[in-house]
Write a protein that binds this DNA or RNA. Structure first.
Lengths: 329, 329
DNA sequence: CAAGAGATGGACAACGTTGTCACGATCAGG
DNA sequence: CCTGATCGTGACAACGTTGTCCATCTCTTG
């Protein structure tokens, strides 16, 4: 910039004015500066600019895994909102590791991002208190923050599951299984709660061998499924607590003579092409990202409603076939 | 930092030394400074730091769409390599729009990223010359840069397609169709070339109604497929030039009485669960990202082999069933 | 005990911008 | 022709770090 000023024979500040399109510069001067800029291939250094203005026009996004389509869609939505506000996006994957989540968040804070969107991996976010106090707007998404009070955007996990299980009940099922993720994960326990509530609402019992929580590896899912199909009162339908469970369940069930109804939480591509097409309770991944980002920018734009808000997005049942199979009596 | 220095009763530079773990500070002083840091919740401002050191420890990634699983996997690989080198990642989606690509790239440059990984949307990247000259390491991935000489990491699109088509020929097919994306897209023309070469290698003719290039919307794919299945010499097999084509083809073909063999370029989740399971030529998305990022950091670490390198990764045939269907004579 | 070496700490400028303010020129009104 | 307002412009400090260089202090050694 100094060079540009020298070449155009003007002061530093005048170049700054031209670059920022501030008013109060003669068209003649603008032209002279502009041509100097072009000649030198000058590009404003935003790092320095933002050091001065104390706004970095960037937000940090921490999620579990960028390669997961669910988070990919969420990221894209956050990015779109950020772009609309002229901000750039830092992304990082925590790989479900609390320490990595914290490292990423603090690295973003050291870069002085204006705001953070975080899919929590850990369950204690008190380390964020000083940052939030220092003015870093923070919104949690998909799962609530741990041990601090903060903005959060969630899917209605319990409600969605209730809907899905009620759908099975409406199709005549009485013995329904549930396979979910590890109890430490908020979404997993919420879905289990929804399952229990739906069963209770219909006055149906839940036998302990009908539900299983734990790492959703194919082997464990397979084992859990075998257990609930084997007993004296085998289930006639299964609610799968997430994508991976659903897919494994499809594989296992397709090899069985007696059909078992299936509803899965979370939609996935080609679910309609499988045999039978898979009924799911779909989350709105872009909606989560969009809401979180919008909330973030509302905060940044000064909406200091001190209250932490909690937004819950509905999950939608998409009947496709597998959930409408009647009980094999 | 000033505050920390004051509170600890030491000089500014000493605090800096402690923060950067530079040697030459008494353990006693370190402790005093450290406790002042903790008390004040101080966090180093990397923007300022990097303004001084002229390295931002960040790289920019521009791709087509973060929500596309292929690019999601690629991003994740780039991120992992970046993390290993202590760098953070800016991401942006061009949405296949050259202007947006340029905006993103220049915004990243204004932030003074150390390097760029770009999946080109446009076909003219001369606008990048000043930046590259200014020292921004740049690697293109998935498609080559337009009108400039730069590092690039590609999939062997032609070779992969040749393999896939040859696979169909080996299973007895003589009349094979090809549906690809718009001719403006580099990968699309390369795949078409591979198709032609494989047919020529086997001494087979290619009739004009057997191949189609254009936007890969379901309607167009459906129409193209109808054409090549209708004529006096209908194809007995199809090579699908990308994911979307493959999926649409599965839908259309599953409704037909006479089986048509199918091989698709690019793998996708659940391909093995469809009926029949889909044979594909799989790209290595993480490999592309990893190679590109490694190349980038090799450049950054001073490996100034002036030559632009061109890395081509193989595509792998994964037989699953649909590609092994014999011709319905 | 003097002098040199090594350890430790701090003052100051610099990185590339922008905000503040003051300066000189121009202009309208009296 | 003077006054005061308005406009265009530039000098300078500041943002929060780090690199350079010098000062001091404490040993060790002859």
């Amino acid at each position: 910039m100094k060079d540009v000023a020298a070449r155009a024979g003007v002061g530093l500040k005048t170049v700054s004015r031209v670059v920022n399109e501030e008013p109060g510069v003669t068209p003649d001067t603008v032209a002279r500066v502009q041509s100097a800029i072009d000649a030198l291939g000058f590009r404003r250094n935003d790092s320095a600019r933002l050091l001065r203005t104390r706004r970095t026009a960037s937000v940090g996004l921490v999620l579990e895994d960028l390669a997961d389509p669910f988070y990919g869609a969420l990221s894209r939505a956050v990015e779109d909102v950020a772009r609309a506000h002229g901000a750039l996006l830092f992304t990082g994957s925590s790989a479900e590791n609390p320490r990595r989540e914290q490292e990423l968040v603090l690295a973003f804070c050291a870069r002085r991002v204006d705001g953070l969107v975080v899919v929590p991996a850990g369950d204690d976010h008190r380390y964020l208190t000083p940052e939030i106090d220092a003015g870093v707007a923070t919104v949690f998404v998909d799962r609530p923050a741990g041990r601090i009070d903060a903005d959060v955007v969630l899917t209605d996990n319990a409600g969605g599951t209730r809907t899905g299980v009620a759908h099975l009940i409406a199709h005549g099922h009485r013995r329904i299984g549930f396979i979910g993720d590890q109890p430490g994960i908020h979404t997993a326990t919420e879905r289990l709660r929804g399952y229990r509530e739906a069963m209770a609402d219909a006055g149906l019992p839940v036998r302990p061998e009908w539900y299983a929580m734990g790492p959703t590896t194919p082997e464990r899912v397979r084992a859990a499924l075998a257990t609930m199909l084997a007993g004296p009162e085998p289930v006639t339908a299964l609610f799968a607590g997430n994508n991976r469970v659903t897919v494994t369940a499809v594989r296992v069930l397709s090899g069985r003579p007696r059909p078992v109804a299936l509803v899965g939480f979370d939609d996935f591509e080609l679910a309609d092409l499988l045999d039978p097409p898979v009924t799911v309770v779909a989350q709105d991944a872009p909606g989560l990202g969009r809401s979180a980002a919008q909330l973030l920018f509302r905060r940044l734009d000064g909406a200091t409603s001190e209250e932490a808000s909690r937004i819950e997005l509905p999950a939608r049942l998409i009947p496709r076939g597998s959930g409408e199979i009647p009980p094999a009596s």
